[in-house]
Design a protein around this nucleic acid. Sequence first.
RNA 1: GGAAGUAUAGCUCAGCUGGUUAGAGCAUUCGCUUGACGUGCGAAAGGUCCAGAGUUCGAAUCUCUUUACUUCCACCA
Length: 884
Amino acid sequence: MKKGESMAKVYEPCNAEKQIYENWERKGYFKGEIDHSKKPFTIVIPPPNITGQLHMGHALDETLQDIIIRFKRMQGYSALWLPGTDHASIATEAKIVDALAKEGLTKESIGREEFLKRAWAWKKQYGNRIVTQLRSLGSSCDWSRERFTMDEGLSRAVREVFVRLYEKELIYKGERITNWCPCCNTSISDIEIEYSEDDGFFWHISYPFADGSGALTIATTRPETLLGDVAVAVNPEDEKYRNIIGKMLILPLVNKEIPVIADGYVDPTFGTGAVKITPAHDPNDYEVGKRHDLPVVRIMDDRGYINENGGKYAGMERSEARKQIVEDLKALGLLVKIEPHKHNVGHCQRCHTVLEPFVSNQWYVRMKPLAGPAIDAVRSGKIKFVPERFAKIYYNWMENIQDWCISRQLWWGHRIPAFYCASCGHITVSRTDPEKCECCGSTELTQDPDTLDTWFSSALWPFSTLGWPDETEDLKYFYPTDVLVTGYDIIFFWVARMIFSACEQMGEVPFRTVLFHGLVRDSQGRKMSKSLGNGIDPLDVIDKFGTDALRFSLVTGNSPGNDQRYLEEKVEAARNFANKIWNATRFVLINFDEDPDFGKIDPARFTTEDRWILSASNRLVSEVTENLEKFELGVALSKVYDFVWDVYCDWYIEIVKPRLFDAGNESRLEAQYVLNEVLVKCMKLLHPFMPFVTEAIYQKLYADAESIMISKWPECDAGCSYPGEEAAIDYMIEAVKRIRNIRHEMNVPSSKKAHITAVCSDPSKATILSSCETMLKNLAYCAGLTVQNDRTGIASDAASVQLEGAVLYMPLEELIDVEKEIQRLTAEKENLEKEIARVSAKLANEGFVSKAPANVVEGERAKLEKYRSIYESTVQRLRDMNER
RNA sequence: GGAAGUAUAGCUCAGCUGGUUAGAGCAUUCGCUUGACGUGCGAAAGGUCCAGAGUUCGAAUCUCUUUACUUCCACCA
């Protein structure tokens, strides 16, 4: 039995993929080896959260990375794709807290140690799920180097960086207004805030003067913060308030005297032009308070309840307190009016709770000194953003950067290595846990209870995963990494922070290129989300269509940085393509001799179509390679797709069939050779995109093959260029297409074959045509072909095909509707007239001829000549038919 | 308030540094058991490349303006 005959008619991805993947992994192909005879090529994975489940975003991200790393591996680089996961402090902690709640426990009740024990157990049990899922995408990660942000080594890196920054005074602890999530019960950094325009109210409240001389009306969106007011500010330039500056007001409900102060911060045109000042609960008020040396009165606890400073409101939840305070003000007649007011409210990115900004004592990274080198790294081109426009967003953020709040009131994460001395108050920050205070020597030390922002550790990922702070061989060989592939949504969270961290710690960029991709949205263009329930599980798609199909659909027709929609039809089309190449292979193998000896092929026996496709495939190699180098993955893929389907399957295979079916054909072996050669080349070009089918096919083609993934990437052969053969086949294809067209238009049944007479004035075209009788017979329902140089013997009602330098006549007798044919020819004639007019006008244009590049002008001339040739024969034919 | 992106066939989208009779997939219409594939083959229909101006010999492509949608940043109580 021939090899191809054992192949199923339909490619079944599910059977093949798992086995193929296991084989790759077992053979160790994914391993990145230090090999000084090769150049390294490194990608570190954007570590997914251990709480995460595979979604389309991962699928896209992984696919892009895998394409690049497989391409580079085949090109001969020592490729390393380093995988791992992120501990995701808030998200994971929330999971554990939820689990505890189900048992009626709280984290405080079980204590820190027990809590962490449970968290690690959870991580062990579920943290690997995402990793398993990544494998089903075909990711060729070096799993032997898998890292976790809380691994011992990575934790050491975190501590090292913290200490270094502290020693350089780039980390400090300070009391500032920080955004706080009362639900997650922790501080968060500025970029973790999500603003949304919410409907709210503007409450106008009357503050009576202490001397009884009337009252001043202020407007606020947060009346409950009134409890913490320490002043009311007006603009010093504001005429209407000039004479009340310095007077005292009675703070309603609290019955405390507060002053009217003057500060330029107040906009006299907004609200009433008078602003209540609550330094503990508003960043601007805090600044005003500092300028005027006002007290800071915090009136809310961490959970969002009014504290003891709130008098009778103490213990009330913030929204409840707001309601009550408004009620009470109304009762006192101090509520002047309530206006509906839309304003931007900050929400917690994770739980969407309304955030509460208030003063607290937190750890910060001083960003200004770190931002400079990080900006330079991109501006100088050491790091390239693809697409470039993201650099602007990056600069804009970096140039206006605020200090980064890195402490979190959580337990799951890297604990801040700061130790407070009970006797002298000194803070000891060190690489190892200190036994005594470095200042006074006291042993009464307590460690800061807080942990670090998750992103603090991910910021070190490109080097911490390679062994830093040790000077490992891996670090020396694989660092800096080459490409970072990620979504534009984490440019600030992660990309920017990796850049400044690497510049500071390594004195070297973390990666040379950042390839940004967009979001995968649903078919209606909405973001996929849990709450909408519109998410598509990549694993379901893989089950239904195969990994290759999913990967193909995510890459094709997509350009860097742009969002895309998930459409099942696209995956289906990709699945069909996998089936197509599978069947092309089946065809090739069925038509091979038992064991073709390609050592015996004679290039002299290559036919025109052989040279045509060898030449075209050679060009394909260079184009696809170039596109991949430029990260134009979608373009590269569609080029291979078009070539395989339209050129190789639809034309080459069809043209070459007679040679294969004729056992005695003298160039049969050459046909088999070219079929095989071009197919393998295409499979290699396709392998990074569709690793599984291409491997399955490769194994079919070569029984003793190792693996396509470690095969050599095709190279462009400069000697393999046959423009003459390419032009000849293109001409023949044109002829076939036009014959098919006319036959279909005339409703000629395929059983009705026609003998074609080619009238050819151009000897070179005559040569081409004389050689293509078989092709016309097989592809254009032709019974036979005669080539002659005049029109003798041509039936006046024959259908005709006008080509450059030739006319093909097909006597189809009664099947031809002469009127219709005249109509068709007339339409064609008119179209040609338009084209000729267009091109002639162009060539008559002095400016065009003198200024356009020579090859463009030449191209237009050739075009004109071609159109004229076809036009003449069209006119001639019309005349014949009309004179009939 | 700043900034960015998008606008091309009924739908989803390609079209790089200006030169194509403006492309693909899906959908539509018509025809096909042609010895790999109906997850296929063949043929067709379908577009003022959002609108307007400019640069140029030449613009879907570059510049400006307008409109619509999307996103990011900042944020006035």
